[in-house]
Simulated assay, not measured.
Amino acid sequence: MSDKFIIRFVAGVTIFVIAVVVLLNRHLIPGPAVAPAFTPYLPMLNAVLNGTCTVLLLLSLYQIKQGNITLHKRLNIVTFCLSSLFLVSYILFHYLMRNEIVYGDLNGDGKLSDVERASAGSLRTIYLVILWPHIILAAAVLPLILLSFHRGLQMQVEKHRKLVRWAFPIWLYVTASGVVVYLMIRPFYHF
């Protein structure tokens, strides 16, 4: 496969995923009237997948520093698969769950009253300071992950290293902050 094809493929996948997520978050793709019984478990699954990916990324870094290319590659393949499963689960949750989940929303109406806003206070600000970079970087890292993964599998080591210098810290932040975001928003799930 040519580099041109790979870059076009990565761009297409990235645009598609971002478009689907935006449409789901804006409720422009209709979901079912009633969510299946397993739906409330998806956010916890996503947090577990993110946490596992965080650990695997750190193990992968350690293994490459030790010169163990085979284990580094295997860990990255598992991490890539788990991150892909996360993405499917994340999209599925937002397709199935139509309720707005808002940090500080104690009664589950998707809006913050003045009392709820005051009650959430600075923790809501901290939550948003973690959440917004998490969202932006999650979108930005997707093409970097796909390209660096491809380069690594093709043993294009120098191209892989150049991409990973950016992809690794961003991917690590996204997976770790995903767990923090889940733990912070969890008390405000109303399902």
Rank of each mutant, 00 (worst) to 15 (best):
K4D: 11
F5W: 14
R8T: 10
F9L: 14
F9G: 01
V21R: 14
V21D: 15
V22Q: 02
L28S: 14
I29N: 10
I29F: 07
P30R: 12
P30Y: 01
P36C: 12
L42Y: 03
P43I: 07
N46W: 08
N46Q: 13
N50Q: 15
T54V: 03
L56I: 08
L56S: 11
L57Y: 00
S60V: 05
Y62H: 10
Y62V: 11
Q63A: 13
G67T: 06
G67N: 04
I69Y: 13
L71S: 10
L71A: 04
L75M: 09
N76A: 05
I77Y: 04
V78N: 02
F80W: 07
F80Q: 06
L82W: 00
S83E: 07
S84A: 15
F86I: 05
F86E: 07
F86G: 08
F86A: 09
L87W: 04
L87F: 12
Y90T: 03
I91V: 15
L92Y: 04
F93C: 01
H94D: 06
M97Q: 15
M97N: 14
R98G: 03
E100C: 06
E100I: 14
D105Y: 01
D105F: 01
L106Y: 04
N107I: 04
G110R: 11
K111Q: 02
A120H: 02
G121V: 08
G121C: 09
L123D: 08
L123E: 07
I126P: 01
Y127W: 11
L128H: 11
L131Y: 15
W132Y: 15
P133W: 05
I135S: 08
I136Y: 02
A138E: 03
A139P: 09
A140L: 15
A140S: 12
L144F: 13
I145L: 15
S148L: 06
R151D: 03
R151M: 07
G152R: 03
L153N: 11
L153I: 08
Q154F: 00
Q156H: 14
E158R: 14
H160T: 01
H160G: 08
R161C: 05
R161A: 14
L163N: 10
W166F: 13
F168S: 08
P169N: 04
I170Y: 00
Y173K: 03
S177E: 05
V179I: 12
V180T: 13
L183V: 14
R186K: 12
F188Q: 10
